[in-house]
Simulated assay, not measured.
Amino acid sequence: MPIVGGFVFPHGAITLDPNTRDFNVVPAVKPTSKQDSINLHSAMAKNAESLVNLRPDLIIFSTPHGLRLKNSFLFLSNLKAKGSAEWDGDWTEFIAGFNIDVDSSNSLVTHLVGTQTPKETLPLRWGEVIPWWFINNAAENAGFQLPPVIYIGQPSKRSQEGMIPELLKLGKNIYQWTESNENVASKNIVVVISSDLSHYHSDDPTSPYAFNEVATVFDEYIKQWAEIDMNSSNNQTSYDKLITKAGGCVDPAGSCGYTGLVTLHGILDEAVHRGSNFKAEVLDYSAPTYYGMMVNNFINSS
């Protein structure tokens, strides 16, 4: 079974250095913001360690930010990608990167649409760098050379609810490719999703987004999905939480990354249909300021 795990990392920059960060300048700050961010930092480090412990040979990475197109999926075929978590002139010291598996990327795109992807050389941004900063650190601490990556940039200007059937199909096709391609079928593959949840949690005047009560509802459905083991017995329950419930309110909830979660679900669901089982673990969830962040994984227990 080539898919050995799926990992979800948020991309909020306050998780990078919460012990030294001045939270007085953070929008929509709360009394619990610092401790929440410290907990998320620890959870992301632990999640990265779990990923490295699987010793993957290939990583499939999905991001809602950075390199992307308005209406289509973007696959990179340049050799390397690197950048900082820069946001409004801050976080520039947090740098991360990875190598691109050009052959596998082109093969996957050919499998999906029958053509190859153009080359791109743009730098990474916070949506990629923040998860990869933790992954790079975990790999360095373990003395492990990270494998190359297939990069998927999620579309930026489409209804996330409207994309659900396409995203589930994409995930299914990605898994089928991992089994049918002789060059990757014997590899250990992990999937990494960069995703924040609803951005409408705060009614603080410094929040860049207005409060919406659907934020808590949406995030709760996502948490429930993330706590469910992926196996043949739980398929329908898992689908109902992520697709029916969360999908029904995703657009008004203002999540960035739901598309990646649905893609991951499609991959894991197809793996389950072919005999795999995945143990679910939520390491942490909170909304330190105005948006929700969750750290979780699904590890193949077959």
Rank of each mutant, 00 (worst) to 15 (best):
157 K>M: 13
166 E>W: 08
176 Q>G: 15
155 P>N: 00
152 I>K: 03
158 R>D: 07
148 P>Q: 06
177 W>H: 11
169 K>H: 10
172 K>P: 10
160 Q>W: 04
167 L>V: 06
156 S>P: 03
150 I>C: 09
152 I>R: 02
176 Q>E: 15
149 V>I: 12
166 E>V: 13
159 S>E: 01
169 K>L: 14
142 A>F: 11
172 K>G: 14
184 V>F: 02
156 S>A: 11
177 W>L: 08
166 E>I: 10
183 N>A: 14
185 A>K: 15
185 A>G: 08
183 N>F: 13
182 E>P: 03
172 K>L: 13
178 T>R: 01
181 N>D: 14
157 K>F: 07
172 K>Y: 14
147 P>E: 00
169 K>E: 15
163 M>Q: 10
173 N>D: 11
172 K>V: 12
162 G>M: 07
157 K>Y: 06
153 G>M: 04
170 L>K: 03
149 V>P: 07
151 Y>K: 09
158 R>V: 14
185 A>Q: 15
179 E>F: 09
173 N>W: 05
173 N>P: 04
174 I>P: 11
184 V>R: 01
142 A>D: 09
162 G>V: 05
169 K>Q: 12
160 Q>T: 09
146 L>N: 03
151 Y>Q: 09
173 N>L: 12
154 Q>D: 14
177 W>E: 03
159 S>P: 00
146 L>C: 04
169 K>V: 10
181 N>Q: 07
151 Y>T: 07
176 Q>H: 13
168 L>Q: 03
156 S>R: 06
177 W>N: 08
150 I>H: 09
181 N>P: 05
167 L>F: 07
164 I>G: 08
155 P>L: 00
152 I>P: 06
161 E>Q: 14
179 E>L: 15
166 E>Y: 12
175 Y>E: 13
181 N>Y: 11
161 E>Y: 11
171 G>V: 04
178 T>P: 05
162 G>K: 06
169 K>F: 12
183 N>R: 12
184 V>W: 01
166 E>M: 12
170 L>M: 07
162 G>L: 06
158 R>N: 11
174 I>S: 10
142 A>I: 06
180 S>H: 07
167 L>S: 04
148 P>N: 10
163 M>K: 05
183 N>M: 12
182 E>H: 10
155 P>Q: 00
147 P>R: 01
145 Q>Y: 13
168 L>K: 02
143 G>A: 03
186 S>M: 07
157 K>Q: 13
182 E>I: 10
165 P>M: 06
